[in-house]
Design a protein around this nucleic acid. Structure first.
Lengths: 178, 178
DNA sequence: CATAAAAGAGTGACCTCTCTTTTTAGGTGC
DNA sequence: GCACCTAAAAAGAGAGGTCACTCTTTTATG
């Protein structure tokens, strides 16, 4: 196939990232071989290496797309709804497991750490924006603890399979209230 | 060497676990080879396999010894002191990085998940004991969020190198107060 | 028909684990 | 109290297998 549309190229690349993410989420980075990614993607060895020069590059691509969602408002309803969303995603696609993999790898890879730090900073900034005026002065502090506790819920889901979100919802609201 | 004291055998085994933990904390499980552990421990290939039948078994041994400390009381001072302890340990021995590795591996290994779940449950129980009488009814909920936020601080240290503990101390106290 | 994407067998490095050999601590007989 | 012997511990070379990645060939599009 020569000269194929950019959309086609993008779709192929995404196909590889999706396959890798799926495998990474169920088996972890270390226990996923290139052969696994190749099989899951339905492509060939050669095709993969046309889009990525190494396994590490695929890991980075997966991490870059791994951004978590956030609640839209800091009300009890929005926060609870958000935790349910995280919970559902953990159940359906093992997303929490994937996040645990990303954090572990970021802990020992400066390149990945940079990616994850940028994502965390963006999340904290987004949450800080939502802090009610009454607590504006502590917005930064609140956002730090809030985002961390959201990440902690994901972490617990990864290890324990399913966890009642209520204590986390209560904790998040307590953090907002101060 | 024949028939050597049990203390000697225990010390040798611990020597291997310590070497492995050190390497795991700075490079991660996946990026640590048996050769690395052998070099770090100062022992030989043959010696290692006398004490452990596989690399996985060493990982389990490290995880079993990886229990985190906890604050002794739920006062602002005790909680702040505890966070400083976690922070110092992350700085001195990359302990936070090791914990991130453990959680990631536990997310994809039922055997390790069981070990970590037991440790988490013990921590929650210990914290629940410390909850003041006024909030006894919510002790379980509080312990869940409290332990998770402590783990989250460790997680952030692993990724960001150093993080001000103040927002976490404030968050933990807010959780206790409700 | 020209060109580039996809295929997939092959390659070399590395990694875990085994097996044989060497060393040594401690018990034994004199 | 000394030499010796036994048995277990430590050493380390290497076997076997797996993995990431490459290179040539095939296929298909514009």
């Amino acid at each position: 196939m020569p000269r194929v549309s950019q959309a086609h190229l993008d779709a192929r690349r995404q196909q590889i990232v999706d396959a890798a993410r799926s495998r990474f989420a169920s088996h972890g980075f270390a226990h996923t071989s290139m052969t696994d990614i190749i099989a899951e993607s339905g492509l060939s060895n050669g095709a993969i290496y046309r889009y990525f020069t190494s396994k590490d590059e695929i890991v980075v691509a997966v991490c870059e797309q791994g951004t978590d969602a956030l609640p839209r408002a800091l009300t009890a309803e929005a926060v609870s709804g958000f935790l349910e969303h995280v919970r559902a995603r953990a159940r359906d696609s093992h997303h929490a497991r994937l996040v645990a993999q990303i954090y572990a790898e970021a802990a020992v890879s400066p390149q990945l750490a940079a990616v994850v730090q940028r994502q965390l900073a963006a999340m904290r900034a987004a949450i800080a924006e939502l802090v009610p005026d009454a607590r504006r002065a502590q917005a930064g502090q609140i956002a730090e603890a809030f985002v961390a506790l959201c990440a902690a819920y994901s972490q617990q889901l990864a290890i324990r399979g399913d966890v009642d979100p209520a204590p986390f919802a209560a904790g998040l609201m307590a953090i907002i209230r101060g």
